[in-house]
Design a protein around this nucleic acid. Sequence first.
RNA 1: GGUACCGUGGCGGAGAGGCUACGCACCGGAUUGCAAAUCCGUGUACACCGGUUCGAAUCCGGUCGGUACCUCCA
Length: 450
Amino acid sequence: MTEIRLTNTLTRQVEDLVPLVPGQVGVYLCGPTVYDLAHLGNARSAVNFDMLHRLLRHDFGVENVSFVRNITDVEDKIIARAIETGRPIGQLTAASTQDYLDDLDSLSVLPVTNMPRATEYIAEMIDMITVLIDKGHAYVAPDGNVLFHVPSMDDYGQLSRRSQDDIIAGARVEVSSAKKDASDFVLWKPKKANEPDSAAFDSPWGLGRPGWHIECSAMSKSILGDVFDIHAGGNDLIFPHHENEIAQSRCANGTAHMAKTWLHNGMLMVEGQKMSKSLGNFFTVRDLLGQGHRGETLRLSLLSGHYRAPLDFTQAKLVEAKNRLDSWYRAWNGAPAAAEVPGSVLRAVRDDLNTPQAFAEIDALKGDPAQLAAAAQFLGLLTHTPADWFQGGGESDDGLSSTGIEALIVERADAKKAKNFARADEIRNQLTEAGIVLEDGAGGTTWRRG
RNA sequence: GGUACCGUGGCGGAGAGGCUACGCACCGGAUUGCAAAUCCGUGUACACCGGUUCGAAUCCGGUCGGUACCUCCA
């Protein structure tokens, strides 16, 4: 019924999507750690995979898609931020989660079917760790950490294509004497004295909290099962996060796979460098919205390159995105959308989420407003009315209200009728300086905020 | 050092053995009191060097350059 092709990181091949259960599809997307506002790189991942979500809903039907995106609400940085600001952890994570959801909403990212929080799945994580210990894949180290023993798994490293020698040769790792092997990683870590009780949970190994990787293994198992269709995230998660998730899940569940297809988006760049928290060169979605950019403009910018390629984010890109949207809004002009998404656009998106190609197909539909609207709205664009798009938006710094602008337009029309072009031009110039563009059309004068 | 990815016209960006997208910008024309918008027209680009082929930007080999990952990161 549908031909969706996706690049699978596990095989490095473009493959047809064949769901494990015919007609149904399950997706797990790694969500944010909530302690601060989302930066544009977080937004990119959410927006890229929102396209996948929309496509799956279209092709399989809303009720046949489980799209899970977790919230990591227990983690070292959260604890650090809570201590630093004196805020209770629960309050910090709840507020950050809401900020994140608000940002995604402004980018027209659809709500997901499940949004599990790590703290709600502690029992499942403990169960999984217990199984791993029982099966000999994990051990309690002398310092109290519970560690996954990487050499206990024969084919560790398939996703990132690393041999264990490579990993050890990496040597950025500080080798703890408590580890049996340098590549072993934490499943459960004991609570430290200076850490608040609210960040600690009871377990067979004493008070503590889960390691980073185990939460995704436990939550995906609980919601989607031992093996599921698609696991997605940023390509900086391939190693170690996803590699370790695979190790935990496969060893605990005794399966050949965790997810069949692994999807990874490329990094967002700024000035040719990866935008990341560690480099401190990031800006948030809020920053850009605060500068007066519409969420829709950001969305189109984020989808203007292929999801797997790096995307260099620039002001010029935002201008291009805005101009392209302007031209679509003009061509559309509010006509009812066609019932079906145009095939050319569907084909592009089904072909490994080729959104740049989809945009080109939409450009070709500018002569057909109904098709244009159906296509663009499928991509989460053209979500405003044209009037709101051109005339709404923040009451800008031009100090002119809509009624004030319209009064000037009437005055200018009278001046034109009286052939007083000097006065007419004076009004046009005044409005131009205020950022208002007038367009004299067949049906009278319209205006928009430039 | 290891593991991947990538080099396309002024810029962005698809494509992927022959039919040379698309957008932005620029330039010319139509239209307009002036504009804006719109329409028409103008661009033979695929890092470099070899090879395979009737034919290569697309396949193969090498060179150069860039980026990411190698236990904080989407």
